[in-house]
């Protein structure tokens, strides 16, 4: 942003509060709200959702005419993409592929999310982590998960 008249920090965090608060409050309206004597499942979330929305507006408004002073927001998209991807991949395949292949692929991809890691280093790290995790979790702690899953025909 070349010229900013508001604090991005306040605007974004306030915005998140408003969206989350509104979601919870609106969804709570579809449940029974009840009375103060017998509160229904919707009572607390409706109240708290409204409070959060209000807080979000105040936070966002507080950033008006208060330009950002500190450093820019510079996320590592590669890091976010790979790390989040790894977690999703783990969840999606742990039952199908089994422990060993999933851990190996996941640790390899996670290692690559750092620009400082070379592919060779990532492979070595992945092998180490796979051996370590299998020893600790599957053999040591008896986690009930197949080494190789049904998708691999085993």
């Amino acid at each position: 942003m070349a010229v900013s008249y508001f604090s991005t920090k306040d605007l974004v965090s306030g915005g998140i509060f408003v969206v989350a608060g509104a979601y919870f409050a609106l969804e709570a309206l579809t449940y029974e709200v009840g009375t103060a004597f017998r509160m229904g499942p919707g009572f607390m979330p409706l109240f708290l959702g409204a409070v959060l929305t209000g807080l979000g507006i105040v936070v966002a408004a507080g950033g008006w005419k208060k330009p950002d002073t500190d450093e820019r927001f510079t996320p590592s998209w590669r890091g976010i993409g790979l790390i989040i991807g790894v977690v999703m991949f783990f969840g999606a395949t742990i039952r199908g592929l089994g422990f060993v292949p999933v851990v190996f692929v996941s640790s390899f991809a996670a290692a690559l999310s750092s620009r400082l890691n070379s592919p060779l280093f990532a492979v070595l790290l992945a092998i180490t982590l796979t051996v370590m995790c299998t020893l600790i979790f599957v053999i040591g702690l008896g986690m009930s998960v197949p080494w190789f899953g049904p998708w691999l025909g085993m």
């Binding site: 790390i83 790894v86 977690v87 783990f90 969840g91 742990i94 851990v103 996941s106 640790s107 996670a110 290692a111 999310s113 790290l125 992945a126 982590l129 370590m132 995790c133």
Partner: peptide, 8 residues
């Protein structure tokens, strides 16, 4: 990477 794996 180890932290991510342990978490999952």
């Amino acid at each position: 990477p180890a932290i991510v794996l342990f978490a999952c």
